[in-house]
Design a binder for these strands. Structure first.
Lengths: 190, 190
DNA sequence: TTAACTCGTTGACTTTGGTTAAGAAATGGC
DNA sequence: GCCATTTCTTAACCAAAGTCAACGAGTTAA
């Protein structure tokens, strides 16, 4: 499993093999069962994750309904926006599959940043990349219909369609489960 | 004008007054007339901005229509997602008012990061904050109606309603100008 | 001053998605 | 296996937003 982590780092950073090794050797892996809540709304977040196997969903509850914000799968970093901050989370983080993840804490992060400024630099660049993705999602969301968003999701992350229940996909796409069902029906007729 | 920059830095970073002074003294200010294109789609971005006065709008063109992504006003940093990268921009950046901004370049940024690692650290944290805002926007967009988004915009950024033409606000809210007109009419009747 | 544009508004009509309710299918626990 | 629960689908109806077209106010340019 630690290989996955090394692979991720060499793909997403410009860190030396030596440094990557140091990180991998000092990293902590955890296993979670499907259904485990990693963070509840109202709680402080003191862990971030890199998924090696499995799937994590973030959501919030509005008007009594779960609204899925994001699905995270293999090789994706999961960092709650209040990670390491003294503010309560608005979001829930839940494992929707049995999941193995590499854990990070604010202390450990700070230590690493101190020891190897290189890592902070890479972290900044990675954050910028994730932000670009987020901005793109928002732009894309505004200018497309629910049907187009479903098609795009099916194209970009086909595995998710299989892995997540439909009502979660629906709220992720910003529609009701009924609407998603209709969209799928319309598409299947073509 | 440089005071504005110092004010921004002391509000948004934990940098020492000394360091802030260094930055302010080395910063370059530029003036742009209303209508100036700061970046066109397809171009590389080698400048980022901190607005001291004025308003910048980013948009993309889809199906021949301008879709407004974001409005940036006083004290907001404007960093195209491809800033300093070797990839062409998908977005246009336009001054919709006469604007004064502080300019940054990738070279200058790197130099500063090298000299003062503190600054890179602050930059990372600022990026994380901006990302949180972006994620929140996306979440908020998904779970609200156009009317609610208009009300929220009017509450959060009342000046924008006055400063930007309605068709730009409409595409920012993700609706047609006709719809926004109707939403405003409905609201005025209450 | 007039002609041409742009922008915002309005109306008629269509399409899409939400709501409610019911039933079918799948899942999980015993 | 069987029952309870959850999830998915379908249908009828409604509300919101898109489309198309027309019009008026304001601006610009000849």
């Amino acid at each position: 499993m630690k290989d996955e982590l090394a692979k991720f780092l060499s793909k997403n950073t410009t860190l030396s093999d030596e440094l990557i090794n140091t990180i991998v050797e000092n990293s902590i892996l955890e296993r979670y069962r499907k259904g485990t809540m990693l963070l509840n709304a109202g709680e402080l977040s003191n862990k971030c994750y890199l998924i090696l196997k499995g799937c994590i969903r973030s959501y919030l509850i509005k008007d009594g309904e779960e609204k899925t914000i994001e699905f995270y799968t293999e090789e994706q970093p999961v960092s709650p926006v209040n990670f390491g901050k003294n503010t309560p989370s608005d979001y829930y983080f839940e494992c929707i599959e049995d999941t193995i993840a590499c854990i990070g804490t604010p202390q450990q992060e700070n230590e690493m940043f101190q020891k190897f400024p290189q890592i902070e630099s890479n972290s900044r660049i990675m954050t910028e990349t994730i932000m670009a993705t987020c901005q793109e999602s928002l732009a894309n969301y505004k200018i497309t219909s629910a049907k187009d968003r479903y098609l795009k999701l099916r194209k970009d992350r086909p595995d998710l369609i299989q892995r997540a229940p439909q009502y979660q996909l629906a709220s992720y796409l910003g529609v009701t489960p009924e609407s998603l069902s209709r969209i799928r029906k319309r598409l299947s007729k073509i």
